[in-house]
Structures are given as C-alpha cells and as structure tokens.
C-alpha cells in the first residue's frame, strides 16, 4: 500500500521543485531595490554620515587631510559591512577603517563603533577612555548614552533610528550639525 503511494508523492515533489525553480527563474526578482538592507550595511552608511555631520576640535587632526580613524569592535559580519567605508572621502579627508579585538587595541580613534556583543564591563572601560581623545562613540545597546556613549542605534518598526546625547557630545568636544539633531532622538535637552 505504502510502496505504491510513495513514488507518486516523490514524483509530485520533484515536479513541484522543478516548477518552483522554473517559476523563480522566469520571474523577475521582486525584492524592491533600495528598500531593504542588511542591518550593518545600513549602520555603516549611517556612520559615514555621522562623520560628515559632526565637527571635531581642530586639535585632534594634525593636518587638513589627515584621515578619519574609524575603529570597529565587532565580529566578522560587522567588519564586512564596515570595510566598505575604507577610503571613502569626506571633504579633504578619507576614512581609514580598522578593527579592535580587545579594548587595548582601540587606541584613540575619531569614530568608534561598538557592537552589541561587547560585554558591559568592556563597554564601560572603552567609553571611559573615549573622553580623553574626543572620540565619537557609536553603540547599539539600550542605555548606551547613559554609559557616556554619544550616539546609539535603535530599531523602530524594522527601521533604524539613532539617539544622540548632547551632553556627552559636549563633554567630548564634539559638535553635531543641526541637520543631524533634527533627525535624531535627543536623549537629554541641555
């Protein structure tokens, strides 16, 4: 009984697979370009814009063409997204991307992206040091700005939003443009 029905099921399945394959191949991709994106590819693009719309104290650059030093603490998938920023130009400066696996490798970057996988104690250490070198710290965990981070990513209805702490930016000597502030969620009014 069962041996008789099984080939039929299998044949049907094979036909289904083939039909599905042919169907997909003949159809055009229906994923609309420009509307969806891999999270970190989009976050990296945001970070490029943050570099564009923040102003650092003159003292942190030795020359008008000194590159932005962007340090990323994250896993391979995150790095893959951020490498696309390598060499991108913002006015006269280019962006130099590098990865820090441990806090000691962070150094004194202009921009620092910290993945949500980084544990709390490490996060405290890194953020504590960022004050000394005017680092624009960017995170993606709740309460990031309360831990003295400058910008924090949030997801709302599947879209990215960002919080800015004006107080922390002020302490770090960083000046956000008004265009950026208009789009941001300001977590502390001055």
């Amino acid at each position: 009984m069962q041996t008789a029905t099984r080939p039929i099921i299998q044949e049907t399945m094979v036909l289904l697979v083939s039909a599905l394959l042919l169907g997909t191949i003949c159809s055009t991709p229906t994923v609309v370009q420009g509307e969806t994106g891999e999270e970190y590819a989009v976050k990296a693009a945001f970070v490029l814009n943050f570099a564009r719309f923040f102003q650092w104290p003159e003292s942190v650059f030795s020359s008008p063409i000194e590159p932005y030093d962007l340090c990323v603490m994250g896993d391979e998938a995150i790095m893959e997204a951020f490498w696309t920023l390598q060499g991108k130009k913002i006015r006269a400066r280019t962006i130099q991307v590098r990865r820090a696996a441990v806090p000691d490798e962070v150094g004194t970057p202009h921009l620092l992206f910290i993945s949500k996988k980084i544990d709390r104690p490490t996060l405290f250490i890194i953020l504590g040091k960022a004050r000394a070198y005017h680092g624009l710290t960017i995170g993606e965990v709740p309460h990031f700005t309360q831990f003295s981070g400058v910008i924090n990513f949030l997801t709302r209805q599947g879209r990215l939003k960002f919080e800015i702490s004006r107080r922390i930016a002020d302490i770090q000597g960083l000046i956000p443009s008004s265009r950026l502030l208009k789009l941001a969620i300001i977590v502390d009014e001055q």
Binding site: G34, T36, E39, A41, A45, F53, R159, L160, L183
Partner: peptide
C-alpha cells in the same frame, strides 16, 4: 551586497533593515 554609502541620512532612515547573522 548593496552599497548604501551614497545615501543621505533621511534616506537611510527609511530603509527596512534585516538582521543577518
């Protein structure tokens, strides 16, 4: 992979993000 680095912040805020591990 799509490159979003040419987009403005306003445009970026409209993109639906997917999380890929």
């Amino acid at each position: 992979e799509k490159d979003f680095t040419g987009l403005s912040i306003e445009e970026l805020m409209g993109i639906q993000v997917t999380s890929v591990s």
